[in-house]
Nucleic acid binder design. Sequence first.
DNA 1: TGCAAAAATAATAGCGCTACGATTGAGAAT
DNA 2: ATTCTCAATCGTAGCGCTATTATTTTTGCA
Lengths: 348, 348
Amino acid sequence: MNESPDRRTGRKRRRMQRVTMQAVAERANVSPSTVSLYLRRPEAVAAATGQAITGAIDELGYVPNLVAGGLAAAASRAVSIIVPSVRNAFFAETVAAMQAELGKERLQVMLGHSEYSDREEESLVRTALSWAPSAIVLTGQSHSAGTRKILAAGNTPVVEIWELGGQSIDMTIGFSHDKVGRTAAEYLVGRGRRQLAFLGARMQEDRRANTRAQGFVQEALRLAGLHAEIIGNPARAGVELGALLLGQALERVPDIDGIACSNDHIALGVLFECQRRGISVPGDIAVVGFGDLDFAGSCIPTLTTIRPPGDLIGTEAARVIINHVRGDRSDSHCVIDTGFRLVERQSA
Amino acid sequence: MNESPDRRTGRKRRRMQRVTMQAVAERANVSPSTVSLYLRRPEAVAAATGQAITGAIDELGYVPNLVAGGLAAAASRAVSIIVPSVRNAFFAETVAAMQAELGKERLQVMLGHSEYSDREEESLVRTALSWAPSAIVLTGQSHSAGTRKILAAGNTPVVEIWELGGQSIDMTIGFSHDKVGRTAAEYLVGRGRRQLAFLGARMQEDRRANTRAQGFVQEALRLAGLHAEIIGNPARAGVELGALLLGQALERVPDIDGIACSNDHIALGVLFECQRRGISVPGDIAVVGFGDLDFAGSCIPTLTTIRPPGDLIGTEAARVIINHVRGDRSDSHCVIDTGFRLVERQSA
DNA sequence: TGCAAAAATAATAGCGCTACGATTGAGAAT
DNA sequence: ATTCTCAATCGTAGCGCTATTATTTTTGCA
């Protein structure tokens, strides 16, 4: 019987919500424990009781308080996802797919953008841990020492996505960017191209793009003893940059005949610039992209590109997280190679 | 003195974290209240005490528990953002900008995707409220009755973004899509175009695209008595769809000379398809897009388009939310028109 | 019908933190 | 010296919920 909890001391305290589980319990003539149990495991409560509770919830318009629930349960139903930027279509796709799956389990997505900075990522991880999330999802496998340390200190499950082959923290879902680069090189070399270049943006920050570039160069060398040039630019990847980089490529490798791009936006820029300069694609230069973005199948010429399974990475990440939340630890320290696919079109 | 809280009853209870504020307080020889105060308002604590606390925090590796904090404070430092899809570059930009600003204030972004469904949005709003967020951000102004009801029942601040002119729930930041459509019509008519069409995707679900289309049609009629055709498709907006829609437009309006698109992807598809069919742009057909996406300045011809200020919407939304969190209610029920800008390029 | 086993429900004791009022101590004003 | 003021710090009592144990009710079966 605490009609007025602070009656004795005269203190005021701001309440969070008007309708609490207590109120639902009273309305349904059961104890709060039963309401809580019903909400978490309906099958553990008798059908009639369940109906009474559902009725009370509807009548009162009860909204459960997940903050209180998270505190009591020592783990919140939040999943923290940290990506370089959701402006990047790759990560947007993964985040959207993951949210769709996690949402079904009433897991809330918390989003952070590292902007390709390890320092920023560390700061985001620190904040994320403050929420006692069910899992933390990080992009890639290169993290600051501090990030690794604070993650090792806790026991929050960690899923690293979009990269493979490095040192895993816990669970890993992605593909080999080295192989992507090698696949592009192999394809171009196989098509008889000999003067190769890799065009990329933000190669300092974007380790994965860098890995693709290295794989490309090494495979060109290994397969045919060719020297492939890497032409980078610190600017953000974009169509305009692609046009610019083509210009640089033509200067550095005058008789260039094969180009791989760190992403499709750059490849599209290359296609446009080739058209402007009257360079035939793939006649004079073959172009391979990365991403298989929206326009790849419609541009002129259509773009041969490597398709990373952004949505699959998202759904798989969601799957292992959901399993973990349910208590199934069998995915612990798993490494899932989602692979990728070369999509042959006209440009190469 | 409660070294072992459950000693008497012998109950086990899982603890959330090893280092609590209590531990920090003991280490720094102050009370927990002071640590809490220091963390929330450092200026209210003496410098020497602050240093002692900072030292203790570092030594112990203390991570504050925002879940507990949120419960005690009756409001969590979370902001729930619900957009149709983060795959859409418009919303990705806004979400990224908003997260950047909110992150500075240690406000956590919680993300949900409605996939253009009012029902789904309602479900997401319900879940969002369970987190007692500092604010809820919704896209657009058309919501289900249920959504409006549950939002009205609480007192969580609501920010509606990307649309203006409808019935506001609370704060509104966006621009008029009707004006966007009218601007496109005015521009094309002003350039002497007479056979007009508006090409759009998902016109049923995407009310804003629909509003732009209606504005376009009405302005064409008002200015020059012209009948503009609306050519829609339930598929997702994309470059490929643009090509398809151009074909339909040519059938429906054989001597078409002016096209407005519901977004730049569709416009790009139109450009590509025109190139394939040997139709000159803007010679034969003028094309106006919407979005000013990455490629708009680089494609052939460069795309005349209407630029919605996605990042500005995000930063403004963050600003009013931060003000509200700080206790400044002056933005309550504000309506901020961010406007938009027609970017003239070659295609029209 | 009686009794053990199982099912359903209830009572208890916090989770870690913050808001509020209370208290302390140092300097200013009298 | 005494009172007053203000800044700095502390003690208390929950926020709303869940995990655990305890109790009650129902069921199965002889």
